[in-house]
Design a protein around this nucleic acid. Sequence first.
DNA 1: ATTGCTAAAAGG
Length: 408
Amino acid sequence: MTVDDVQGLMLGVEKEAEVEDNRSPLERFRRPPKKPLSVTDIVSPAWCELQYWYSLTKYGKIKRTPAMKQGSRVHQDLEAQVYDVVPVAVETREDVWGLRIWNVVQGLRTLRATGLTRELEIWGILDGEVINGVIDELSYICPDPDLELGLEASKQDPVADRPPNQLSIEDFFVQRSAGINATLTNAAPPPKIYLTDIKTRTANTLPRGAALKTVQLQLQLYHHLLSALAHGTVPRSAIFSRYGLDSTAPFSTAMTDALTALESTSTDNTPSSTATPSASRPEPHQPNTLISLWDLMQAEFAQTLCAGPASSPSATTLSPLLRAEFRAQADGAVLGSRVFVADDEALARYVGEALRWWRGERAPRGVDVEDAFKCRVCEFAEGCEWRVGKVEEAVRRSRMRWRKKATE
DNA sequence: ATTGCTAAAAGG
């Protein structure tokens, strides 16, 4: 190696640090060993792609604002209304994942037993990429019975053998106090399930425009991913391999013991098992690997979200009615809600465009001129090239108007 | 005692 070679080498290293990173956002931030895509990753850029891009490159994540921290607290209080937390000693990464899946199983059982569950984690595939998210709320309560009736009526081929069984809030509590659990699990078709996302607000007003679009997309994406889980089309091997997990490795003894204890507690709390002495029940097979636990979760999804084992796999009880509920940041008081209808084509259009950016097939876009208010609270506004470009464009336009006026 | 970190979502 000559002196020139060494200098060339050093130049190369220096140059590499200065040179622009040409990898796609997906390759830079969401490929192993980094975490996979989340629903937030797809939805948040709807506010401003450039802001998301700057956040990823500068911090690798979004900075938590005081408003966000308060919002997390409101959500925490809501989750505590539904679940008791049981500490479990975990030893391996597979144990940790076993608990995450177990929490989903418990969430679905809670939904069936009480008509409500909160903070349900989901996994899926979006255009070949593994993606995860957390659903705020699933419930039996129809957010808009009139809209639902309209949807049923407008269907080309109405489901004849399954009458609409959506409940108003009043019906729900009346039926629940009359012991609806036994009725629903034994005879009647399973009730429809409605998705809700809760947003806390600093101002006591309902959002419009961009803030509304974001939560709408978020709900649509949850609906899409949840449907796949209901139909059992999510390939577990793809999920486990993306997270680098050994899906056939047995859980640790501590974990297995904890699962056995939790299983006996949870079944004893359900209405059906209190009538049956636990000794006369056949002991359910205790899942001991991620594969078997996933399959248990899959069965729970089918039981909760499908019209019945005998019906066609497409008969999901997941309603296309999606609700965004807005609450006051200060005390969590409900400010109001908006209801949307799931639109898979609109979702596919948005997701397709969002993924083009994630794949590096197009540059990130900043906000339109009419959304310039967003730049006021953006920490990256000062160095934002898009913003400079928009200001120049506005100046150019006003000059042209001025010239046109002058020649008239 | 309360905050931070990890997860996602947290809000504008």
